[in-house]
Design a binder for these strands. Sequence first.
RNA 1: GGGCGCAUAGCUCAGUCGGUUCAGAGCAUCUGCCUUACAAGCAGAGGGUCGGCGGUUCGAAUCCGUCUGCGCCCACCA
Length: 879
Amino acid sequence: MELSAKYNPSEVEDKWYAYWLKNKCFHSEPDNREPYTIVIPPPNVTGILHMGHVLNNTLNDVLVRKARMDGKNACWVPGTDHASIATESKVVAKLKAQGISKEDLTREEFLKYAWEWKEEHGGIILQQLRKLGASCDWDRTKFTMEPALSDAVIATFVHFYRKGMIYRGVRMVNWDPVALTAISDDEVIHKDTQSHFYHLRYFISDGAGNPTDKYLVIATTRPETIMADAAICVNPADERYHWLRGKKVLIPLINREIPVIEDDYVEMDFGTGCLKVTPAHDAHDYEIGLRHHLPVMDIIDDHGCLNEQAQILVGEDRFVARKKIVTMLEEAGNLEKVEAYTSPVGYSERTDAVIEPKLSSQWFLKMEEMAKEALDCVESGRIKFIPDKYRNIYRYWMENVRDWCISRQLWWGQRIPAWYLPDGRVVVEETAEKALEAAQRLDPSVMAADLHQDEDVLDTWFSSWLWPISVFDAQRPGHPEHKPNRDLSYYYPTNDLVTGPDIIFFWVARMIMAGGEFMGDVPFRNVYFTGIVRDKLGRKMSKTLGNSPDPLDLIAKYGADAVRLGMLLCSSAGNDILYDESQVEQGRNFCGKIWNSWRLISGWNVDKDAQQPLVALTAVKWFDNLLSRTIETVEDCYAKFRINDALMTIYKLFWDDFCSWYLELVKPAYGQAIDAVTYEATTLFFEKLIKLIHPVMPFITEELWQHMEERKPGETIMFERTPVAGPYDAAFLADFERTREAIINVRGIRAQKQIAPKEALELYVDGDFPAELRPVLCKAANVSAVHDGEADGTAVSFIVGTLRMSIPLGGFVNADEERAKLQADLAYQQKFLAGVRAKLGNANFVAHAPEAVVAGERKKEADALSRIAALEESLKSLG
RNA sequence: GGGCGCAUAGCUCAGUCGGUUCAGAGCAUCUGCCUUACAAGCAGAGGGUCGGCGGUUCGAAUCCGUCUGCGCCCACCA
């Protein structure tokens, strides 16, 4: 079968992906081989593929394909995450566009819409991953909210509750007034925000609720919250304010009387040294309020608007209210001054709304004990982070862990399995039936209708942290007595996790905790942290900037292999990736190179009787040695997770060594056949090369491997073995390097002197040059003969190592120019020699430096001397 | 504000224990080639005071100090 002149990725990719699926090449079942397991970082069920996914999943796929070719039973489990906030807000937005408000729907109605949306859009991303070539075991696809996995989540809640690790409490939480839910501290992003510092006068009360003419001044960024003030606080050491002791002041506009209190928390030199204490709307103020038994008055509703408690500006949005109240304060004579002020403000990661500190009742999971163990997993080296620097960040997190707020005021997610009795008591059970039984044990008169289930759902990460366990055996989490099934026993712990450092605590740390809690073992052994994909200007890729290409467009344009290669070329672990389309072009070009090299080889006619030329004999020997050495390097790179180095090593081996050198050396003259020995060796090399590249470029390698010879049905390069390194002769490889240098020198001289490549030259070598490499020199440099000794008459010379080589060029040589060049070279060598000798003349150096280093310097000295001698001879022969 | 990390060629990055001709790679650039696998290519070439300053050492891109410029994590002085 003829190979088309150009590689056509789209045809080839669809064909082989379908072939792999049909032959269940990605499917894994436990057997007696060593397992290699990866669970996908589950993308949001409603997500679509972006460049970050491409990077992550390409890395995963490379690792899993490599392991498969290493003979392991490789299993990559795919799936999606229900992503409660993200998905729910998308559904809410979609309903809003249809004129439906969430608040008009019952929970059941809303969930029906949400599931419809999930069925419609869910898993698009998994289809897209197929285009990338991801070799996931699709038969094992999981969803964090499918029944079995949801049951696991509920069971773990009950488990922790019974262990006394889950509790319910009123806490100051981060309220997102757009998503209408509390979010965890980690989902809050602090951004420096331009605002104002309002200096307000609070007049001292005369004791009967009337203002005197004395006042104090407080500075606040949130004047709209003054109606919720419970006190004014000063530092007890602040003598400026001792006269205020025991006094009461009046809140401006509403004239409510509040006490002046003293607390160390207040910084004397910040603002005016007077702090208004607003327990309901500030976490620190809440703490102060607890210490001083202050009343809590909540004046902001769930949407961020002032409520009746505020007395004024009721119903106004907090930011509108801020503007209005400033005017009112000014008119009332309470505004002293306004300063421009920049301070960090918390924003919701999801909705970008300004977070409102809010008191509410939430469920928490105690973290301290689990965090200790999880820290130890990493500190002890049972889990390795790549790169290592993330251990520091991880340690910080684990040592400063706070209890995890696991409840969310949403509907999309696993509903908290807590039921309240009419008297307020609570029972926590896996099902409503069990809850009723439990409730009746407390109070036999309770009926099913009397029980009310908690309205909240659980944080998405409360299901994600079970992922490496629940994808294999959803029975196990929460039921330590359940014996792990066959899959879980075989595949757990997984081997490698590839993910972004931004979820090191959200996900990585918590999986480690869940692993310890439910399996007594780590969930994975290595965590490879990728960087963020940025554009070439260093900007984060984002929809709004429009600087993020659609991966599917790229795949359509350049092919999946090209996209994969382009992505990996610039990805060292942990560094951000500056992506540019030119990298994908480079990938495409490499595909073209591979393709064309096989076109060349497969086009050769083989002559069974032909004898192998000497040059081919040497070339085969060389490439065989080089291949072994390179495979060793590549294996070392993989072992250290230096995937881009492994790739670059193979890339150069293929392009430079195989195509530019090896093939050019063995290539028969035009119209001539190639001998069978060389041909066999060449196809074997080619096959090994494409096997080496297959984990990175699965499609083109499969296409060519299938093209090389008739394969049996179902056969695939995927299950071929990674080529192994044999012994190699390093000295011979070094000799070949010198030969290459000589060839490059000759070519350089041709270029300089404008001598056509077709015109054969003669070469003189003054010294010992291996005979077996002479044919290589002749063919690659178009040298008709290699003579020993030195050229007669005018010649151009050069030095390789310590060998002097010269080419007699007669009329082509400008003796003055050559002399000048030689003299410059000579001067350099003499300076070099002087430097080396200065070192060797230093008694301290000879005394302190290791012997090998001193010997090295002596070698340098000897080499420099012989080069100087050679240059002087060349100068002499120039006359 | 605290902590961690980074700074090497035009760009993106390697550089292991301080010592081997150590100053490297890929891309980009320049020059010459439509040579019968490939112009998405071939051959050749140029390009860096290793961020600045100081120190340790026989010897520093590498270790220490400091300054400058970036990045990340943490942190609600209202």
